[in-house]
Structure formats: C-alpha cells, structure tokens
Simulated assay, not measured.
Amino acid sequence: MRRTILFTAVALTGMPGLALAHPHIFAEARLEVVADDKGFVSELRNVWRFDDVFSSSVVMDFDKNGNATLDQDELDEVGQTVRTSLGDYSYYTNLSSDGKPVKVKAPDVIHVNYQDGQLLMFFAVTPEAPMQLKGKLSFGVYDPTLYTSIDFARDEDMATVGDSFKACQRAVVRPDADEVLKQNQANLTQAFFNDPTGTNMSKLFATRLEVTC
C-alpha cells in the first residue's frame, strides 16, 4: 500500500508561488522532444532526478537485503512500480496539437539508477496518434495533483532534437503563478486546491515547451 501511494504521487511539475499547494517531492528534470526526418514527433525522452529525502524513502521501501542502497533487481522493481502506477496519469505528460490533447503510449521500461544519494529515472514515451510538426504544439510534464514539483532549471532542459525542428520556432513558457491566479480567480475555487486533478486547472501553472511550425 505504501509503495502504491508513494509512486502515485510521483510526477514532475513546477508551480512556484502557488500558496495553497504544498509539494512534498522535488525533482530536477530534462525533456527532449525528438522528431523524425518526416516531420513527426517520434518520442519524448525524460530524465527525472529526485531530491535526497524522497530518494531515501524509496531506498527504505525497496532495499530488500538491507545494504542501504538499491541493487539492480531492486531498481528494476522501482521502475516497474512507477510504470504501473503512473499509467492512469499518462506519465504526467501533457501534449497538445493546435489545442487538441494528444495521449501517449506507456513506455516500454522505466530505467532507474541511484547515484550520490539521489534517485534517477529515464524513460521515453511516444504519441498515441501521429503528431506532425505543424501548427502550434505544446509539451509539458507535470503532476496534476500538485504533490510533486518539477524544476526545468534552464530553458535548454526542454530541448528539441532532429533537423525537422529547424523549420519551427520554439519557446519555453514559465507562467507567473500570481498572474495565473489573478486571471483565473473565478475558476480557481477551493475545490481546485483540495482536488486539482478534478479540475485540470493545474496545467495553467506548469512550465511547458511551445513549438510553432
């Protein structure tokens, strides 16, 4: 039960300044959006590096042999647990093409490593439907429950890969939380802060990569 709760909470989203939300897990992330030579998004590569406190709690839960670290079989179990738990949340990946949402397929595997007291996860997802580099595309990775805070420290941490992107313009959008609250005061009711997943408003605060082709 504890493991299920633990990884249902795992997601990476940045919402600085949101006074009534209280992230309990913190992570640095990198996202690479890859395009093929035909001008379609082929995959989205994710790297998540978790904070020391959360990483230690994972070691406590999954360290079966008590050697104070995670061996390969234990790392594999962490990855499989996350892969199963986050399926209902689309692996916290939010894609849209001209405003229409695009779902993603489950990753084949989530690779996990434990280095210098921090848990790292690496995985790739692909769009469920063809996603052409045409019009306005948006790519975001965030936790709709607000439980986990993501930090794309640099704009370069939301990257595009592939020659097809040369015909597009890209921008990393970092919403100002105070401005979002001001503009959406009528919609951001107490219900949002009690259950953000029920309103889908948390995406207004999330850092995202926008590509116009």
Rank of each mutant, 00 (worst) to 15 (best):
E32V: 15
R208E: 12
D195H: 10
V47M: 02
R45K: 15
A191C: 07
A11D: 03
T189Q: 08
F40R: 06
L95W: 02
G66N: 06
N184I: 14
V59G: 01
T13L: 11
Q183V: 10
L188T: 03
G117Q: 03
R170H: 13
V173N: 04
T69F: 01
P175Y: 07
T126M: 15
T197Y: 02
D71E: 14
L18I: 11
S202K: 11
D195N: 15
D157A: 07
Y147I: 12
F50T: 01
G162V: 10
R49A: 09
P175M: 12
I110N: 02
A159M: 04
V59F: 01
D151E: 11
V47L: 13
T160C: 14
V173E: 07
G66M: 07
T4A: 13
E128L: 15
L6H: 01
D143N: 14
P144N: 14
M201K: 04
K100I: 13
Y114V: 09
D195V: 10
F62R: 03
S149R: 04
M131Y: 10
D52E: 11
W48H: 04
L146C: 07
V211C: 08
T145M: 12
A191E: 13
F152K: 07
S42A: 09
T84C: 03
I25K: 01
E210F: 10
Q169S: 15
I25E: 00
V125F: 03
V104Y: 02
K136A: 12
D52T: 00
H111L: 14
V33E: 04
L181Y: 02
Y92L: 07
T148P: 00
F139V: 08
V58P: 00
P144H: 09
A124C: 11
L137Y: 06
V172I: 14
